Simulated scan of single mutants.
Amino acid sequence: MADLLRHRGPALVLTGAGMSTESGIPDYRGPDGSRRVTPMSHQEFTASGDNRQRYWARSFIGWQRFTAAEPNVGHRAVTALQRAGAFGHVITQNVDGLHQRAGTGDVTELHGSLEEVVCLTCGERADRDLVQAFMADANPGFATAVLGHVPDGSQVSSQIRPDGDIVLPDEAVRAFTAPRCLVCRADTLKPDVVFFGGSVPKERVDLCFALTDAAPILVVLGSSLKVMSGYRFVRRAAAHGIPIVVITKGPTRGDAETTHRIDAPLGVTLSALAADFSHAQTA
C-alpha cells in the first residue's frame, strides 16, 4: 500500500464509522458487518412529533458524551499522511467533525454535521450547542434522572452511537420537552445530517463523483460499505480502473472491487503507514 501511494498518490480517502471507534464512538455494525443497532430513519423522524421528541431526548444525553470524544491516533495519522502528500481530499461518512479537529484539511462531510440544526418548516439554522442549551433549560434534572436507567442495565455512556444518539426507556422520553424553532416555533428542528433513508444533496454527490473520477487511488478507511451512499464511489472507482485500497476490520460490500485490503485496526495501521512516509521523507 505504501508503494502504491508513493507512486500514484495523493489518494482520495473515504472514511466510515470505524474511523471513530477508537475515539469511543462505536460503529453501527459488529465485526461480521451485521447491524448492532438501528438508528432513527428520516421517514420516522418526519412522521410525528412523538418521534422527534424521542430523538431529541436521546440525542440530548448522547451529545454530552459525543462532544467529549477526541480525535484518535488514526485521525492524526490521516492528517500526517495528507501533509506528506500520500492522502488528498477526504470524504467522510461521519458526522462527528473529528477529522477537522485532528487538523485534516479538504474534508467533505458526505452526511453533514451534527454541529448545526435546521428547521424543516422554515429553513432557519442554529448552532447545536445553542439548541443543547435550550433543551437543558427546558429539562432541568433530566440528565441526572436518566443516568444508568437504560434497557440493558448499563450506563448511558455505553450506548452512544455514531450519530450521537443513545438508548433511553420510553417513560423517560415522555417527560422530555423537545426544542422548537426560534423563528416559526415549529417542533421540526432536525440535525443537519442525512438520516438513514434520507438522501445526500445532489450537489454534494456530484462533487464526490468528480473527486472520484479524478483520483489516482481510492483509500477506504473504517467502512463496511454496506450503505450505498459510500459504496457508490467504490463502484465508480472500479468502473474507471482506479486502484481501491481498504483498511477496516471484517468484510466489506466492496471486497470484489478492492485492489489491496488490510483487515486490521486503523490506529496502529495508519500510524505505521504515516511513519513509513515520514521515514522516507527524512532518509
Rank of each mutant, 00 (worst) to 15 (best):
V117F: 14
D106R: 12
S199I: 02
L120E: 15
D127P: 07
V131M: 01
V107H: 02
G164C: 13
F195I: 11
K190S: 04
S199W: 09
V150R: 11
A138W: 03
L168H: 03
L98P: 01
D170F: 05
V150C: 01
G103K: 04
V193G: 05
R101Y: 13
T188R: 12
G123W: 05
G112F: 11
V118E: 06
L147K: 12
S157F: 07
L130K: 08
Q155M: 15
L189K: 03
G198F: 08
D163K: 03
G197D: 10
P162Y: 15
G197H: 08
E171W: 09
S154A: 14
G141Q: 03
V131E: 01
F196G: 00
R101L: 07
T108R: 10
V131W: 00
Q155R: 15
A186D: 12
A145W: 00
D187G: 08
T92K: 03
G112E: 04
P191Q: 06
V95E: 01
I166L: 14
K190E: 03
A133I: 04
P140E: 09
A178I: 04
N94F: 11
A143C: 11
L120A: 14
P179R: 06
P179C: 11
E171N: 05
Q100C: 10
P169D: 10
D137L: 12
D127T: 02
D163I: 04
T144F: 04
